[in-house]
Amino acid sequence: MALIELDNLTRFYRLGGETVKALDGVSLAIDAGEFVAVMGPSGSGKSTFMNLVGCLDRPTSGAYSLDRQEMSRRNADELAYVRCHQIGFVFQQFNLLDRLDALGNVEMPLIYAGVERRLRRDRAAAALTRVGLGDRLHHRPTELSGGQQQRVAIARALVNAPKVLLADEPTGALDSRTSLELMALLQSLNREGTTIIIVTHEADIATYAARLIRFLDGKVMSDANQRMVDAAEALKALTASAAMEKVA
């Protein structure tokens, strides 16, 4: 059985007397260890899809199971538990708290998981080291670059060892080089076994995933595996060409 299974999942809203079909009968399965990119124009349902998979929202009808557990009929506290232990979120705007240092931000999910204080520090520090910020533990978000801030956010998403990492436009606020670095980091996490789903509107970012799902009008328009471009290689090539330009 797949890690994520959606069966005829729908999500309707009432908006000014009209019913908006944000998600209209989506069925798909994602296995553990996959790296999926989700694309689609705005209003196509990709955000609704992410919110439902991330247990931030509940479907109008249909079934959703995560790791063989049915999620569509859970109450708010149970969904909070699932978000806490099985899901990691990364946002376009990072959403770090400026008043906390990197360590404090990464620690936050562990607080809600009820992890004891000293253990929390250690695990947060380990997660930050994993994303290459072992020397920036006590920097505040305002003292970090955009790419570094997004790495802190990824460390925060990983710190509870989730089943799946959900990233909504993770490179949306980053320049192309930093975007590449970030994709390289996500790919290396994926190689270590983390299941990753990213939403993006940039086609080149989507090429770094191994599977591309396109949404349109609340339905899956296409869903295909693809050759995964190695972001680390692309980064090397970019560095080389930049050096060439400099020489020329």
Binding site: A76, R83, C84, F89, L97, Y112, A113
Partner: peptide, 16 residues
């Protein structure tokens, strides 16, 4: 508001 949204996303229950 965003902080609250974030806390909920990383696993805070309404009562938290």
């Amino acid at each position: 508001t965003r902080e609250i949204g974030l806390r909920v996303a990383v696993g805070a229950r309404p009562r938290d």
